[in-house]
Amino acid sequence: MTQPFSYQTTFKLDKSHFSECYDESVPAPTFVVLYRKGAFLLLIGALLVMFSELNPYAAWFIFSLGLLEVVSSRYKKAWWVARQMLSKVAKAEVSLKIDADSVHISSFYNDNKMKFSDIERITPTDQGWLISHNSFRHYISNRCLNASAQDFLQAKVSQ
């Protein structure tokens, strides 16, 4: 008689985990998509500053918003990782349990049990797994999984 699959581990939410999570879960936009809004605001702001009778403060404000949008687009990952590192979950220890029925991720701040019957999709990435559950995406890194857990998730993808 074979034993049902069960795997349990813990890991810390550190900077390298957040960086990997961003790299693996956020789709990389094209250059045009990334800078479109900032370039539009810069152009409108510049045109208002040079050719309009509009209050100069408003025109410069629109121009400045465009500049801020371009800078925030350029440093999107660094900004996201910094926000995560400043949050209350930074450096928290997370417990991960995978069994035949569910994936259970818990910490002091969060407790999430996802039954495989409720999981919409499991997507393998280069360095881990994206789990879509109730319109949310959760990332599990291969750094915290052994080979049998990775094989188990791969079998769930194939089903």
Score class of each variant (00 low, 15 high):
V103F: 09
I131H: 03
N55C: 07
N112E: 14
L65D: 06
V32F: 11
H133P: 11
R83F: 10
I131M: 01
M85V: 07
N134S: 15
P27K: 03
F136C: 03
D118N: 15
K77D: 11
W129H: 03
D118V: 14
P56V: 00
K77Q: 14
K97D: 14
P27M: 00
W60P: 13
D111Y: 07
M50I: 10
Q127R: 15
I98V: 12
I62D: 14
V49K: 02
E20P: 07
R36M: 15
Y109V: 12
K77A: 10
R36D: 06
P56I: 01
L47A: 14
L42A: 01
S117H: 08
V26P: 01
M114F: 09
E120V: 06
K91D: 05
L41V: 09
L34N: 07
I131N: 01
L67K: 02
E53W: 03
V103I: 15
F31H: 06
K91L: 01
L68R: 02
N55R: 09
I119F: 08
P29C: 08
A90H: 08
S132E: 02
M85G: 06
G38C: 06
V32Q: 05
A46P: 02
L86W: 04
Q84W: 11
D126F: 07
G38S: 04
G128A: 08
D99C: 03
V49F: 00
F40E: 14
I98Q: 08
S52G: 06
E120N: 14
E53I: 05
S132G: 00
K88E: 04
Y22Q: 02
S135W: 13
L96R: 13
D111V: 07
L42W: 12
R137Q: 11
A82V: 12
S106M: 04
F31K: 09
D111S: 05
A28P: 04
F51Y: 11
W129P: 00
A58W: 13
L86G: 06
E53S: 09
K76Y: 03
I62G: 08
K113Y: 12
F108T: 08
Y139M: 08
W129A: 01
E53M: 04
I44K: 02
A28L: 10
S25H: 00
L65M: 10
H133L: 00
S132P: 08
A78W: 02
E53R: 07
K77I: 15
A39F: 14
G128K: 07
D111I: 06
H138A: 09
K91E: 11
M85F: 07
I122S: 00
